[in-house]
């Protein structure tokens, strides 16, 4: 965990209610894809946790969906705004057992955090497949970013307005993957945990947190190994670990 002051250098809307913030600062605290950052938003008492969608060259990337007072303030922040951020939080994804053909599955704002993971897996020589799900074409995120890595994502929308109709979990049926890495809504992650037909499954959970670094026990979930903190013991949990 590292505490630092970051300066907003860019704030762009990616989809209705979803903003991408580029923040300049010391990103050396980020040690693995799948970790999160905890942002102190002026006007809020508690920090807000967001998955890291990039941490390269001193620029931290966060994608923020406007869901309440804190995220409304954050998505309205202008370039030049300075924010106190804790980085390097959580365990992050374990890339060591990905195998040759990992399948990356994202739902909504769970998709962008898979982008740095995808880049890392490519650097390790894997050939990742990517399946992303959104409510509609309008809500789709990060398709061009994955394309820039040379990956054509399989897209699923609930209303069929883009790609295939339905949920990204349908991508599991094709088989042939050596591991699954997923970030998205809890029901999606639970379905992947049930249905993925491979030994390595890495699920990045979201939870309402108090502190974000393991002190308050606010985000505890039940796992087969007993109570675990999403912020400190997770946010990434393995196959069959979480009691849904």
């Amino acid at each position: 965990m590292k505490q630092g002051i970051f300066t907003v250098i860019k704030n762009e809307q990616l989809a209705p209610g979803v903003h991408r913030l580029r923040l300049e600062g010391d990103t050396s605290g980020v040690t693995s894809p799948g970790q999160f950052a905890d942002v102190l938003i002026p006007g809020c008492f508690l920090r807000r946790p967001f998955s890291v969608c990039g941490a390269e060259g001193g620029v931290l990337t966060l994608c923020v969906r406007n869901t309440g007072r804190g995220t409304a303030l954050l998505t309205a922040s202008s370039p030049g705004a300075r924010l106190d951020i804790l980085t390097g939080l959580g365990n992050g994804f374990d890339l060591s057992a990905a195998g040759e053909r990992p399948l990356l599955m994202g739902g909504g704002t769970g998709s962008p955090p898979l982008y740095p993971l995808c880049a890392s897996l490519l650097r390790l020589g894997a050939r990742p497949g990517v399946a992303l799900g959104y409510p509609s074409a309008e809500a789709a995120l990060y398709l061009d970013e994955f394309r820039s890595l040379g990956i054509e994502p399989e897209v699923y929308t609930l209303d069929g307005s883009l790609g295939m109709t339905g949920l990204p979990t349908q991508a599991l049926r094709a088989g042939g993957y050596t591991s699954v890495y997923a970030c998205g809504p809890l029901p999606m992650l639970a379905a992947i945990d049930r249905e993925a037909d491979c030994p390595v499954v890495q699920l990045s959970l979201e939870a309402r947190m108090g502190c974000g670094f393991g002190a308050c026990m606010g985000c505890t979930i039940e796992t087969k190994d007993g109570p675990r903190r999403v912020c400190k013991d997770g946010p990434v949990f393995g196959k069959g670990e979480v009691i849904w």
Partner: peptide, 21 residues
């Protein structure tokens, strides 16, 4: 050992935190 209370266990006030861990 105690698991504690159901989530959400954390809420926020204008100048503080509510917990029901």
């Amino acid at each position: 050992p105690r698991f504690g209370n159901p989530r959400p266990r954390i809420a926020e006030g204008p100048s503080g935190i509510l917990n029901s861990v």
